[in-house]
């Protein structure tokens, strides 16, 4: 039931992208996010699109599977597009009643829709090719210098990896409790808003109880193993850059320079 959410899910294909150092992918995602807002004009859009298509191709994650993740933000995208369409001042294309569509609004709506789509595709590609553990490892290492400023980097990344780890568990649990209550005749999609909200109680109460129970168990298990945080902790699989990572960095920097050059020159 809740399996349609693809953001934050890992999709193993064993491609080059999957084997890359998570730091490269974090940096790459950042570069891509910047590029989505930096590009200008049709040429820029073409470069960004080509880059995204190429990276998706390399990752070997089925495109259909990635598109499914977009469904979750469809409503958000529609609302943004509508606001842009009707509320941007400019040259009126056509109007009816009090609403008017302007040329600027149309361009803005399309550009915004493209940006949002690319943002989601780009970021979900990172999580689809990187396990949560790798991701937090990469984040911890990348943010390492902040430790000098007394930022508890290790603790933050630990909290993140635990939170990420629990998403599928709690999703599964929700599914299970939903089914169990449905077996007792509950229904979650009948009636008006108040009735719907009420029908969530039999789902939410057990879910919260189980989340607390799991948190307790985990804390107990960590303490039983004398876990005490980041100081002096070593890694089983320390992150080391390979040739492929260096190549990826080069490509990313070139890509960003190209887009900036296009923006400045055109």
């Amino acid at each position: 039931m809740l399996r349609d959410i693809t953001i934050g899910q890992y999709y193993p294909t064993g491609s080059v992208m999957h084997r890359m150092d998570p730091r490269v992918k974090l940096f790459g995602t950042l570069v891509f996010l910047i590029s989505v807002f930096v590009y200008r004009g049709i040429v820029g859009l073409a470069v960004v699109t080509l880059f995204l298509a190429g990276v998706i191709g390399i990752s070997r994650v089925p495109f259909r599977y990635m598109i499914r993740g977009l469904r979750a933000i469809l409503v958000l995208m529609l609302i943004t597009a509508l606001f842009n369409l009707f509320l941007t001042p400019g040259e009126v294309l056509f109007s009816f009643w009090k609403l008017k569509i302007t040329e600027e609004g149309l361009i803005c709506a399309v550009r915004m829709a493209i940006r949002l789509t690319y943002l989601i595709l780009g970021t979900s590609l990172m999580t689809l090719t990187t396990t949560p553990n790798q991701l937090t490892d990469g984040l911890e290492k990348s943010l390492g210098p902040l430790r000098r400023l007394r930022v508890p980097v290790h603790e933050i990344s630990m909290i993140m990896s635990i939170a990420l780890r629990f998403i599928p568990i709690l999703t599964e649990e929700t599914d299970k409790i939903m089914k169990a209550q449905m077996a007792r005749g509950a229904s979650f999609d009948d009636g008006n808003i108040i009735k719907k909200a009420k029908s969530l109680i039999p789902l939410l109460v057990p879910l919260f109880i189980s989340a607390f129970r799991r948190a307790n168990d985990l804390a107990m298990a960590m303490e039983a193993r004398c876990y005490h945080g980041g100081e002096g902790r070593t890694k089983m699989k320390p992150l080391r850059y390979q040739g492929i990572d260096r190549a990826a960095y080069t490509v990313l920097v070139l890509y960003l320079l190209l887009l900036i050059a296009l923006r400045v020159l055109l």
């Binding site: 409790i177 169990a180 209550q181 449905m182 007792r184 005749g185 057990p206």
Partner: peptide
């Protein structure tokens, strides 16, 4: 569902 009663694993969690 009311004719075929199903008790899940660890039903006390519900």
């Amino acid at each position: 569902r009311s004719k075929v009663g199903l008790v899940f694993q660890y039903p006390e969690h519900q």
